[in-house]
Amino acid sequence: MEPASSYQQILQYSNRADPYPLYAELRKTPVARQEDGSYVVSTYEEIVALLHDPRVSSTAGQLPSFISTDPPEHDRLRRLAMRHFGPPHSPRKVDSLRGELLQIVTELIDGLGNREQADIVDDFAYPFPVTVICRLLGVPLEDEPRFHQWADELVEALGPGEDDLVERVKRRQAVLLTLGEYLAGLIDAHRENPGDNLLSGMITDEGPDGTMSQHEVIATGTLLLIAGHETTVNLITNGMLTMLRNPWLLDRLRKEPDLAIHTIEELLRYEPPVHFLPNRVALDDIPIAGVTIPKGAHIILALASGSRDPAHLRDPDHFDPDRPYIQHLGFGGGVHHCFGAPLARLEAQIALRELARRLVNPRLVTDPPPYRPSSTLRGPRHLEVQYDGVNPYSELPAT
């Protein structure tokens, strides 16, 4: 039996805590054909080229939404969703949430005050973004725990190489069916009584692109649940882990709250929540880096590897929020650049700034922490932290 390739080793759970040395090996062959005929692309320049290449299709994606469609249909659905979430029609939507986000974070940290140890994942990083995305979608407060469970189950069924493919597909389809039935009922309720939320907007809007069908609204709602929740959980948790491993960063964030902006950008490069974009397909032969990816082949873009490519930036394995050039693949790129990037950035900035400022002498209980199964959406499953109390909340100047 031949030894496992660098890519196959990255998928193994035993390497989840630190896959980065394996990414360095992977980059020695920027475009590597795998035994199953797929091609893994691991260097920054080549990943960026393919993210913008119209010969690469996203229709083999694993979630039924505009993220798994190609232009022009992708563009129509994305515009319809963006009308209620961002520019040009709702340019201040995300920034208007700043006060509400801070309130949610404050309440969660207040809840840690009578304890000496907390799991940053279960006690903070999970409930924060799921509360936000449920409020944005118009999900009743009492149903938020169900969304948490569905999101968790869907994410663990995504991505290459984890568990048995047939079994993962069955689990994913079962959760999608249950979630779709719930969203259908919720859409009917919002159609009868529209409110100030994304679901109401998508089902009542009659803009220049027409209206979304019920199926399209369900698919978009499902996407926003996953993209708006799971990736932010990982970004916050990876960020807290990085701060605890670098106490100087905690100290600087306490003294320089605006540093949170650059810290999040460097985290998106250094410890990104999304490591792979799997299931792209070549629509034609694509010559790249001395290799021709044949028409019909599956392409896997190793985003986390590209963001640490030494050909792209100096000293990539060093965490530096003062880096003058922080350009990363943390939100993908091209037409599929992350729809929720502005919200994820703001959530993570507020979360890490407040954790750094209010937890007194926080320290890791276990390092490395236990990781979740997925190699695609990589992050700790638990992050146990001890601390000596919680500083009282006090209003900070707007950043």
Results as ranks from 00 to 15, higher is better:
residue 336 H to Y: 12
residue 317 D to K: 11
residue 347 E to D: 08
residue 298 H to R: 14
residue 306 G to P: 00
residue 295 K to G: 01
residue 330 G to Y: 09
residue 358 R to N: 07
residue 303 L to P: 08
residue 347 E to N: 11
residue 316 P to A: 11
residue 354 E to P: 00
residue 355 L to P: 02
residue 297 A to T: 03
residue 307 S to T: 09
residue 355 L to E: 09
residue 349 Q to C: 14
residue 338 C to F: 14
residue 349 Q to D: 02
residue 335 V to W: 01
residue 329 L to D: 05
residue 322 D to R: 07
residue 351 A to N: 01
residue 355 L to C: 10
residue 291 V to L: 04
residue 345 R to L: 10
residue 296 G to P: 04
residue 327 Q to E: 15
residue 306 G to Q: 05
residue 293 I to A: 00
residue 312 H to Y: 10
residue 298 H to A: 15
residue 354 E to Y: 01
residue 345 R to I: 14
residue 329 L to I: 08
residue 344 A to K: 09
residue 310 P to E: 06
residue 320 D to V: 02
residue 314 R to Y: 03
residue 338 C to E: 14
residue 341 A to T: 04
residue 305 S to M: 05
residue 332 G to N: 01
residue 321 P to D: 00
residue 331 F to Q: 03
residue 305 S to W: 08
residue 300 I to T: 15
residue 326 I to Q: 14
residue 350 I to G: 01
residue 289 A to Y: 13
residue 337 H to C: 02
residue 332 G to F: 12
residue 309 D to Q: 07
residue 329 L to K: 00
residue 290 G to D: 08
residue 315 D to S: 14
residue 329 L to E: 05
residue 359 L to C: 12
residue 298 H to T: 14
residue 331 F to N: 05
residue 304 A to M: 15
residue 331 F to S: 01
residue 344 A to S: 08
residue 318 H to S: 10
residue 350 I to N: 00
residue 326 I to M: 03
residue 349 Q to G: 02
residue 291 V to N: 13
residue 321 P to L: 08
residue 317 D to M: 13
residue 323 R to Q: 06
residue 345 R to H: 12
residue 309 D to S: 07
residue 297 A to N: 00
residue 313 L to N: 07
residue 301 L to D: 09
residue 323 R to W: 07
residue 313 L to D: 06
residue 357 R to F: 05
residue 289 A to G: 09
residue 333 G to R: 00
